[in-house]
């Protein structure tokens, strides 16, 4: 009887050890990575099919412009977070037959493309697109463009808040810009150092060359970022653009942090009190000879295009305030 009890206990014990380990892995990492957004969002970072320029049920800020481009307009591309903006531009000034979407992606001969930031900078450098709506590139993207003989020109169109976000259960509501730089530099590594719980800080970063990663590098002002290898056991902080996480992704369970006590509301972005904003641009190669390009660039700075930017949810660029925001 005593031996039987020992045998049963050792079997149950062995099973319990595996179960405890698997549950710990599931709760610490696996559960956090289960994405409930649509397959299209997971694959493309934006619901392209919901923001197509000429679809009947499109969500873009549709406006019919006072000018139309020729039958062979410049090929336009852009970032995921700016897709609704340049899709609305296409709706406004491109002839409908110049845009072809096969249900999954734009066809190679379509005048509208979507390659996201990294792909669009590569396409601009390789001259496979004429124009892209993007935030500033990384040093590597700029160097690659130069290598390919492209001299990129940046025309400011609008701007958005660069935001930091945490899980909604995190008690921290606001951080200073310096605290965030210290967190990403690895000098602050626990939430209780900034008024939160006694947990490690998991300072998450994006892929190199993505728009928000380039913006984050600029925000760090030359300081190197260090990831805590044990950060995954704690609570994470991430960064993105306000419009992208507030309007495009629609994920529940996160909250944007105030910076220096100022929350990233459209009012605080517009009045300049929110401290970190990021400008987005129409980017093209200075040597591009497409005959419609100057007209299109000029129109993108017009009242019509600026209204599209505002109606989409961004702040249109204001030349009188621009120098404060660069």
């Amino acid at each position: 009887m005593k031996i039987l009890t020992k045998q049963i206990l050792s079997l149950v014990g062995a099973a319990a050890v595996f179960l405890a380990f698997d549950l710990a892995v599931y709760n610490t990492v696996t559960r956090r990575c289960i994405d409930k957004t649509s397959a299209e969002m997971q694959a493309k970072s934006v619901e392209v099919s919901e923001y197509l320029p000429f679809a009947e049920e499109t969500k873009i800020a549709a406006l019919d412009a006072s000018m139309k481009l020729s039958e062979h307009p410049p090929v336009i591309d852009g970032a995921a977070g700016l897709f609704p903006v340049y899709s609305a531009f296409v709706h406004a000034v491109y002839p409908e037959q110049t845009v072809q979407y096969d249900g999954e992606s734009f066809t190679p001969d379509s005048a509208m493309q979507y390659s996201n930031t990294r792909g669009a900078y590569k396409a601009l450098a390789e001259h496979s697109v004429d124009l892209a709506v993007l935030v500033k590139p990384s040093a590597e993207q700029l160097a690659y463009a130069e290598e390919q003989g492209a001299e990129l020109e940046f025309v400011p169109l609008g701007y958005d808040a660069f935001v930091f976000f945490v899980n909604e259960s995190n008690p921290v509501e606001s951080l200073t810009c310096e605290q965030i730089r210290d967190i990403y530099a690895g000098e602050i590594h626990r939430w209780d150092q900034v008024g939160g719980k006694r947990l490690r800080i998991d300072a998450k970063q994006r892929n190199a060359g993505s728009g928000s990663q380039s913006a984050m590098k600029a925000f760090m002002g030359g300081r190197k970022m260090h990831a805590d290898p044990l950060g995954f056991t704690g609570s994470a902080i991430g960064f993105s653009f306000r419009y992208y996480i507030a309007d495009l992704v629609g994920v529940r369970g996160i909250k944007m942090l105030a910076l220096d006590g100022i929350p990233p509301t459209p009012e605080h972005i517009a009045d300049g009190s929110y401290p970190v904003v990021s400008t987005f641009y129409a980017v093209y190669d200075k040597h591009n000879q497409h005959p419609d390009l100057p007209r299109l660039i000029a129109w993108m700075q017009s009242e019509e295009a600026q209204k599209i930017i505002a109606d989409t949810g961004f702040i249109p660029v204001n030349p009188s305030q621009q120098s404060l925001r660069e």
Binding site: C33, I34, Q42, N167, A236, I237, G238, S240
Partner: peptide
Amino acid sequence: SCSIITYIANGR
């Protein structure tokens, strides 16, 4: 393949 937003929304 997990986005940062998903990772943080599902975390703590």
